[in-house]
Design a protein around this nucleic acid. Structure first.
Lengths: 214, 214, 214, 214
DNA sequence: GATGAATGAGGATTCATTCAT
DNA sequence: AATGAATGAATCCTCATTCAT
């Protein structure tokens, strides 16, 4: 594997991410993470002070870049429908590179974990507010009441993250790996179309949707 | 609690559902389930042969009625947009009564659990196919290609289940309990509107959406 | 099985004997005994006050008749070599009917169980002394020193009990069931021959051995 | 104890041997073995993966050297009666050093344990065959039929192992510790004499028996 | 006499963590 | 920085026994 010669700390983080995503916090044994990193269970403690700290590092490492990217993408002042399309593209492209992240977040969200609470307040909340402002400024979103706009944003969250997080289940139903590049491309196109219907110019089918490269 | 005089087995199932939903399988201690059922840790084994068996019973008990309801709702031959609206209503109403179920399913879906695999093949798969057939018959869904229809169904799944499963996270962001009746009513309305935009008659805003009692 | 209509208590004793013989005291679960008796685990306690009491009842039930028979057989004043032959025959015939008993005794002997201590002092000791007296009276046993005579008696014990108790192991080595009637008959003949060599008239091969019906 | 500074693994094996011999597999608690080794119950699992594995290691550690010795002793081509005498001496001397082994074997033999099955097929079986061949070659064993020879070998097994395994019971009856050096010496002499009678030159009392140092 | 349910004690095993090397 | 060994706390589960029905 290409992982073999990464710095130890990175190897641990990668192993931990995979296992935490697959089995959740409680279901993951520190020894398994260590073994997957080519380490003895004890050696892990030379790099992270506790399982909990490692877990938070994994979350942080995964979420920070994503948020960074989102904030940047959303910051561009662009009230056109293309903005939504662009954000979706950026988000999907990012997650394609870190496909385990949504599972981690889902685990944490479902659990109502304390750490996520902090993350939510510190990061997701501002993002939400930003998205809200953007939508309010968009003339095409007028069809949504003010109290529906948060749900709209949440809807995007569910759609994007759901596809990744529920991948194991979807695979059983869709007869293909939802994380394969082709599937992801299709899901991106699908979401753009959907987004166009939700916040695009009224009275148009998706035919009016701008065609951009993925 | 009103649960106090239920048959022991029911009390165990209820307690287990709550804890499994909150903490996942690995994070839940049998003793905690027992304690919450007013039992000694050992007594549980007079009713269920193992933690795994109890877990599966909980899943089954939660999922079966939901599927039953969905199958029934979807069985009605009705290609009008109102059909989607009706199904959404039924689904949301059902989940309002068993709000923990989506978290269980999410846990299991994220975990890629073997049991869910069986469930998927036995139940969700047919549902998917049924929904697919209905959508193909609907003239309003013509705007979706054939290979997008499965994603459309999955989208509904993500939207409905996501709202419940991610409730703890949403609460932090929305400043209200997403499971409160008012929130659920709003989410139902929102989803209907959204559904109308996605598979309703083309060229119309949601204004043309039929208004029905929830 | 013919056991089905025995009195409950007998059924329990039979089941307990089989399981105790096979798995020892600690390795046998009361519930297994009960199940094998067609009973619920709790019902057993209507017949025996405790596992220990049941165990002792099994031992007693098995050992008493054996001792009775031995005492009677040994009581006959008969210093001829035929006496040994007769005792061996009686012993083997008895054990053929209760083939599990030697395993029980072995278990108990190996364990150094307290109960066996009592049995030894109460029953086996007198038997030993009786056998000792008989051997001392026999002119043919003169080739054994006084301090070897107890070992000689113990040797018979080992030979007879060993064949039954080690049956599972012997089966692997002898390629036949050591408890099958034919095997037992052969073992009886073998032990008589052996006995004749040990305490028979000197200077003779086993040719001089009396031929009696088994 | 002199055991205090042995390697941990050896200490565990010794403790386990003693307890398994005394109480059998099911009757022995891992915690007790650990405590006797000066360890916490969990530490044991740093050295053996399971109770069963530890048990098998104990059996193996005990049986292998014994078999080695027997195979070597029996390999010497020597059909004279002295051969039997030599083997008996070697066996008794070995068991004097590992007096718990016969109890372990007895436990396992009585239980019909799967592991012993393997041992029997792998080791005891060849030994049996070897002994059989030796006896067939011995002119003095002509008094035994071919189908009695296996029983003759088994008889030696019962006599030697029985003395050790049933020691707790014999102690009650013989009024002395059967494992004390003096008792063992006497038992060895006794078995040689007995062996001489069984397979020695015909027509002689044990007077003709060769006198060798133990 | 039989049983389903309950339970305290204990049993094997896992786990996160520590520490000496 | 790595590891083998150690450990207290927990975990799932079994067991002998009790008791109300």
């Amino acid at each position: 594997m290409a992982e073999a010669d990464l710095p130890t700390k990175e190897r641990i983080l990668a192993a931990a991410e995979a296992l935490f995503a697959e089995r959740g916090f409680a279901g993951t044994a520190v020894r398994d993470i260590a073994a997957r990193s080519g380490l003895n269970g004890a050696s892990l403690y030379n790099h992270f002070p506790s399982k909990q700290a490692l877990y938070e590092a994994v979350l942080e490492r995964g979420i920070q870049p994503l948020l960074q990217e989102l904030i940047q993408a959303a910051a561009t002042p662009d009230p056109s429908p293309a903005a939504g399309s662009r954000i979706i593209g950026a988000l999907m492209a990012h997650l394609e590179r870190t496909p385990l992240l949504p599972r981690l977040v889902q685990h944490e969200a479902v659990r109502g974990g304390e750490h996520l609470g902090r993350l939510a307040r510190r990061w997701i909340r501002p993002l939400f507010d930003q998205g809200l402002a953007a939508l309010k400024a968009s003339p095409n979103a007028r069809r949504w009441n003010d109290d529906e706009l948060p749900l709209l944003i949440a809807a995007y969250l569910h759609l994007v993250f759901g596809h990744f997080a529920m991948a194991p289940l979807l695979a059983e139903v869709l007869d293909e790996d939802p994380l394969a590049p082709a599937s992801l491309a299709r899901q991106t196109r699908f979401l753009r179309k959907l987004s166009h219907l939700l916040v695009g110019p009224p009275g148009l089918g998706p035919e009016g949707m701008p065609h951009e490269a993925q």
